[in-house]
Design a binder for these strands. Structure first.
Length: 136
DNA sequence: GCCAACGTTGGC
DNA sequence: GCCAACGTTGGC
C-alpha cells in the first residue's frame, strides 16, 4: 500500500467537488513523471492527500483513495488516468506553511523548494502526520 | 501580478 | 546530444 499527494488548483477542482461527486477521473496530468506514478505504481486502495495549489492558503484539504488504478486516457492514450474516491474533508486546511514547520515532514516532496510535481509519493509516516494535523 | 524553478522544444 | 529559448507551475 502506497501513499500519495495529488495537487489541483481550486479553480479546476476542490475537495468539495470530490465530496459531491463521490469519485472522479483524475484528468489533465501532462507531466511524464506524474503520469508514470499513476500508470505504474498506483493501486486500488492507495491513500491520497488531496492538495490545493495556488490557493489561499495552499495546502492539504482532505483525503481520498485510489478507486481505479492507471488506465489510458481515452482522449489521448499517451496519458493516464486514475479514479479517486472521496474519503474526508479536513475541518481545517493543513497549509503548506504548517507542513514546512512540522517535524517529520522535512523531506516531504511538497515542502521542497521548487517542487512542481503534481503527483507525489508520500511516506506512511508523512501521511499519518498530515492526517493528525487535519484533525486539529 | 511577479518571478524562480524547472520541464519541454527545437535549432544546430 | 547540447543547450538556449520558451512555456508552465505555483508560492508569495
Amino acid at each position: 500500500m502506497k501513499h500519495w499527494l495529488m495537487k489541483v488548483e481550486p479553480s479546476a477542482y476542490t475537495i468539495d467537488d470530490l465530496e459531491r461527486d463521490g469519485t472522479t477521473k483524475w484528468e489533465g496530468v501532462r507531466n511524464y513523471q506524474a503520469r508514470n506514478f499513476m500508470r505504474d505504481e498506483m493501486r486500488v486502495g492507495d491513500k491520497v492527500l488531496f492538495y490545493a495549489s495556488n490557493a489561499k492558503p495552499s495546502g492539504v484539504t482532505g483525503l481520498a483513495v485510489i478507486r481505479r488504478a492507471g488506465y489510458p486516457d481515452p482522449a489521448d492514450e499517451t496519458w493516464t488516468l486514475v479514479d479517486i474516491q472521496f474519503v474526508k474533508k479536513f475541518a481545517n486546511v493543513v497549509s503548506l506553511e504548517t507542513l514546512k514547520a512540522t517535524k517529520g515532514l522535512e523531506k516531504m516532496v511538497v515542502t521542497q523548494k521548487g517542487s512542481r510535481l503534481s503527483i507525489q509519493p508520500v511516506t506512511k509516516s508523512e501521511y499519518d502526520i498530515v492526517v493528525k494535523l487535519g484533525k486539529k
